[in-house]
Design a protein around this nucleic acid. Structure first.
Lengths: 260, 260
DNA sequence: TCAATTTGTCTATTCGTCTATACAAATATG
DNA sequence: CATATTTGTATAGACGAATAGACAAATTGA
């Protein structure tokens, strides 16, 4: 590490004063972005708990081998994402916490979030009836061109966006679902209101990639952060597809759990 | 899009000549990196099939609204990852293809890769006996300090690295597993040789994040690409934990599939 | 109340990214 | 074989990232 430590750390328990792995240069990702990502990952991994204070800027800068201004640029982006908050004279504190998210036959966002001790909410962004294209038709096992209801929403836990995505429903099966969903903030409850008492997960497909502009915006996550992209098909008890959806989960705010 | 198209595209079916969404600037990710990621995502999404030629550099540059040199920098990184190959006078062609990877009670890498029509191989990187730390002990349900066998390996399909990770086994249960694994290139076969005929998946936990330096190196993926991090526990028929492992999957080369 | 600590802001310089122009080299096709 | 097409390389200038130094502002604790 080329940068010499500029401030001698106070005595006592001290994390992060040992040098971190060098931040690679020339990778196409700026230093401040990489540092922000590492700090975010460390927080997600539990290195610092909510409410805990991070090492001071000078220490972090030294540990990462960068200038304090570069380090501050990293912290600024974390603050922008809502993960940390800094106050002059006081320090920088952690705000975030990941959610344990089991995926099973009866995956229900509301139940999962409530079980995690937080407040679930489905923020309805928009819905409209459109004719099923080839992909939607295949997933829902209907004829191409059949009217489907397309709903776009964000799912939040304690006001923090967890997932953002789109779901398609057979329009004739779910009249006015968008209106009831918008009113209740819960998809499961809206379906129940419409007489659909049960459905279960048929298949979940997962990939991951860096968030795009829309996802960054809707999920309030920093550029370059990863999203887990879930494509899922839910079916009614008679086996008929009810819903096909594709959602992006803020990877740092959720940990998917599977038990075969 | 500020950049004017510099070459009139040839007549006939033509993708990508319409302008792509503008590449954001000031995000901490260079333009060439973002372009590389988008092209990689498009390839993974099936926009171009292996063997198919990408639009020429001038067209791509125009579509992304960047200089041809910037576009070339993006293509260079994709070529470095093995996704594409370019030849002067000939064009740029796609090489990559994602693997469908079902996760279930009997997840076996070899079976999955073979089912996908490719050649599976477990590249043994190293193994040694060590004393279980707190985390390993908890996952394997043994006393802290119990000797465990730690194995590091890369799993490949047709010579392309798919996952890289570490697994821990109760040393007394799997004597010489590392040696047999190194010799056979198949964990399942190695365990069978040692008298362990069956095991099943108890739990799989998934997160995602950008690949770190080691993962970029071992998986031959470009900086900033995402990895799917799987923590898994496998147990023997009697319910006793056999293996705890944590592997990083190249997110662009694999799509995880779950059927509850 | 004051000193110490920590974050916040300003100005300036150097290095890397992006753009631009031009032309060489390799391949494909008529 | 010649032309068109496409990638590959060289040089140069403008702009953003990173560094550096200095000092102000806010908070904490003695």
């Amino acid at each position: 590490m080329s940068g010499a430590a500029q401030n001698v750390p106070a005595e006592g328990h001290n994390e992060m004063t040992e040098e971190a792995a060098p931040v690679p240069r020339g990778t196409g990702v700026t230093l401040w972005r990489q540092i922000a990502e590492r700090l975010e990952a460390d927080i997600a991994a539990g290195r610092w708990q909510p409410g805990e204070r991070l090492p001071v800027e000078a220490e972090l800068a030294s540990a990462f081998g960068v200038n304090r201004h570069t380090l501050r640029r990293a912290l600024a982006s974390l603050a922008e994402s809502g993960l940390i908050e800094a106050t002059a004279g006081r320090g920088t504190f952690v705000k975030a916490l990941p959610l344990r998210y089991p995926i099973g036959p009866r995956t229900r966002f509301s139940e999962i979030v409530s079980a995690g001790g937080r407040w679930p909410f489905g923020r309805f962004l928009g819905g409209r009836v459109e004719n099923a294209d080839a992909e939607v038709a295949r997933e829902l096992e209907i004829a191409e061109g059949t009217p489907v209801l397309r709903i776009e929403s964000i799912h939040e836990a304690d006001g923090v966006p967890i997932s953002y995505g789109t779901a398609w429903f057979v329009a004739s099966r779910c009249p006015d679902l968008d209106l009831v969903y918008a009113a209740t903030g819960s998809l499961t409850r809206a379906l129940s209101t419409l007489g659909i008492e049960d459905f279960r997960r048929r298949e979940t497909r997962i990939t991951a990639r860096p968030a795009n502009g829309r996802e960054m915006e809707q999920l309030s996550i920093a550029p370059g952060r990863s999203v887990l992209v879930l494509e899922r098909v839910d079916v009614e008890p008679n086996g008929r597809p009810l819903q096909w959806g594709r959602s992006s989960f803020a990877a740092d705010r959720v940990q998917l759990v599977f038990k075969p």
